[in-house]
Design a protein around this nucleic acid. Structure first.
Lengths: 215, 215
DNA sequence: TCCCCTATATATAACCA
DNA sequence: TTGGTTATATATAGGGG
């Protein structure tokens, strides 16, 4: 749909490939938006330039897990370079001051110094490399902290589960003793919620077993 | 681009909305394919009909995380009980048992190909950039998967905890009824492990509240 | 890079089978 | 529902700032 028909193969000329990329990319995203509006459906478009940049469209109304998945992906990639600053700033307001927050606060300041300073033009590659490294380190710290919190949460919940099960068993024993029936058999008419009889002993730490592999 | 211009809003007539959906969907996917070919980039398009069917395009040459993300999405929806009978318009799907391992294997192989190949000297910066991107994507993928597994684990444990507490309460009621004492007061000499009386109601989802910030 | 222009190629809305 | 047909609306290739 241009001055002439083009072959459907990789455009060899780098310059015109770039132009075509830009034009068709926006065209694609426009069409995606139209489709989602006209037909009231969830649409996502992801385009990766071969320099690794991500261009995306996800219709916001999709409260489905689609947008979450994609947002999650976007977050992880964005954190690779630019968008992490905003996230870092919100974290700064958190009162749970730990080493990370300190570090992130400092980092934000230094980023601001970099970006707002009048000497922005004068920065050398060296400076940006340092900045990149700092951001990457911040990311690592953030993720490490996240992992730690999640592991704590899992640990607490596991502990909680164990204790509850224990108490549960004792209560069952008691009920059994009080009504003179061996604990091994609970009667439904006792009103005991034995919904969990089957699942209660399943090993829910299974997912964790794979974590070492994933580090 | 039809007999007349249409407003950009949801098509109310169900029948023509369906027709438009079908036509524009295939148009969108065609454009996505063209973009990926002409410009040699990774493109993914996901379209969910509001009946839950998934139509997708993912250019196969993308050994990057794109297809993995989509596969993971399919897996998660499948686990969700949703109908993810992917009406895949285009690509062959590989056994989506453990996408990461597959991917990592592939990645290792491609790295080996890069490094052991006799043309190592001939590689351009471009090639190393691609390799770097692949490695970064793999890392992202791995971390995302890890996060997912941990969240699932936490969710399961929370659920488990809730159910156990519930059962526990019922058992306590029962004990109270059997011994003729209001449930509000448990006697220690009953042998009930009420170690948890204080902690049992604490909100253990608290650590999760900080996760969004850390994302 | 990015925007504008314009001739053409494509996509598609309405219709029909 | 699907699949053509056709008149129009859009997208975009090539070219110039």
């Amino acid at each position: 749909m241009g001055r002439r028909k083009i072959e459907m193969k990789r455009i060899e000329d780098k310059s015109s490939r770039q132009v075509t990329f830009s034009k068709r990319r926006s065209g694609l995203i426009k069409k995606a938006r139209e489709l989602s509006i006209l037909c009231d459906v969830d649409v996502a478009v992801l385009v990766f330039s071969n320099r690794g940049r991500l261009y995306e469209f996800v219709n916001s109304s999709s409260s489905s897990s689609l947008s979450q998945i994609l947002k999650r992906y976007q977050d992880s990639t964005a954190a690779d370079g630019k968008a992490s600053i905003a996230a870092v700033e919100t974290e700064q307001s958190s009162p749970s001051s730990c080493a990370e927050v300190q570090t992130c606060g400092e980092l934000v300041k230094s980023v601001e110094r970099y970006l707002e300073g009048p000497e922005l033009e004068n920065l050398r590659l060296e400076d940006f490399m340092r900045l990149e490294r700092q951001l990457a380190d911040a990311l690592v710290q953030t993720r490490t902290r996240k992992t730690q919190l999640m592991l704590e949460s899992i640990g607490t919940l596991s502990e909680q589960e164990k204790l509850l099960k224990q108490e549960n068993e004792q209560l069952k024993d008691e009920v059994a003793n009080l009504i003179g029936i061996p604990k091994s058999r609970n009667h439904k008419d006792l009103g005991v919620n034995n919904l969990m009889e089957v699942d209660a002993d399943r090993q829910y730490s299974q997912p964790l077993r794979t974590l070492p592999l994933l580090r």
